[in-house]
Simulated assay, not measured.
Amino acid sequence: MTLEVLPFAGPLAGQLASRPETGLSLYWLGQAGFLLDSGRHRLLIDPYLSDSLAQKYRDRGPSHERMMPVPIDIDEMPPLDFILCTHHHTDHLDAATLGPLARRFAQLRLVVPRASLELAQDRTGLDPERFIGMDAGETLILDDAIEVQAVRAAHEDLQRDGQGHHLFLGYGLGVNGIRVFHSGDTIPYAGQVEEVRALAADLALLPVNGRSPALAAAGIAGNFTLDEAVELASSCGISAVLAHHYGLFAFNTLAPETIDARVAAMTGPTRLLRAGKGIEYRLAGPSEMTV
């Protein structure tokens, strides 16, 4: 796999009008959100394109005002085929984002943890047939072109519902000969390296905002530290890491300068990048995947 970092000027909506003929284009939407375009399909992972949390916590708890603006208005989003949500927290499964998008695009399907199926339906008001449930250890083929493998995530624990379904997931995606791993929100857990290594990912999308006793005391679960994210990718033989889940909420972030310093100090075969606005990440693989 080759990975090009292509900054662009102007709004994201304009950039999305140009689609890749081969490989995969990837754009950061802020927090843990990404848009992936294979040329044939567009999918989102964990999009948070509203201010619903700022409204929810207006008079209580830490401020959830956005540090970065919404990168694209929902009514400017081009047609979408699938949205994948890793877990039920609102910055990953946001009714104010998912509902309007699903109502705009009748073909759009949403993949969510099976443990969150009922909640997702209630939260968005969408019909059950719009959703696909997954659990860790399962593999799904979307439209005969996109392979999705679900793995466990620990945010900060490996939690299950009453039926034994995992609350927090990561997704390994295979499309156009390229494999991308989105960990969801997670910290290290026993067996994680083996599970992630089996995905044979070319690129890992990993949170780096870390965790702290103060946040835990406030009921706010944490994530990988930057060093832990790099260590996981290195241990799994993943050639590139895109660090994200920073820069949205002031109470739970990591300074961009800290990530940039780590990028500059990196040695070895794993490449570290900081997810950024106004950048297209273009991935090229050996061939289109056959499933």
Rank of each mutant, 00 (worst) to 15 (best):
S183R: 10
S18P: 03
L108S: 03
R282V: 01
E231I: 02
H166P: 05
A204C: 07
L226S: 15
F251M: 02
T253M: 07
V151Y: 00
H165N: 11
G177W: 00
L80I: 08
E118D: 15
D122S: 10
L272M: 12
L53D: 05
R152D: 12
N209Q: 12
G14F: 01
L173D: 01
P78A: 14
A264N: 06
D202S: 11
E4D: 15
E147T: 14
A229N: 14
H64R: 10
A233T: 05
R160N: 01
P100L: 05
L205F: 08
F131I: 00
A96H: 08
G137A: 05
A13F: 02
G210C: 02
I74M: 13
D37G: 13
D81S: 11
V263A: 08
A201F: 01
D75A: 11
S235K: 09
R104G: 02
D260H: 14
I45Q: 01
V291L: 15
Y189T: 06
L84S: 02
R40Q: 11
V111D: 04
I83K: 00
Y48D: 13
H182N: 12
G210T: 02
S239G: 14
M77E: 00
A201E: 02
R179K: 10
P256R: 09
K56F: 08
G285L: 04
A233R: 03
F251N: 01
V5H: 04
G137P: 04
T124W: 00
C236I: 07
L272N: 11
T290V: 15
L3F: 08
T253E: 14
E195C: 06
A17L: 11
A233C: 10
L3P: 10
V241Y: 03
R152I: 05
G219S: 07
R197N: 01
P286C: 04
Y57K: 07
L199D: 06
E4W: 03
R66Y: 01
L12N: 05
H155G: 02
G268W: 02
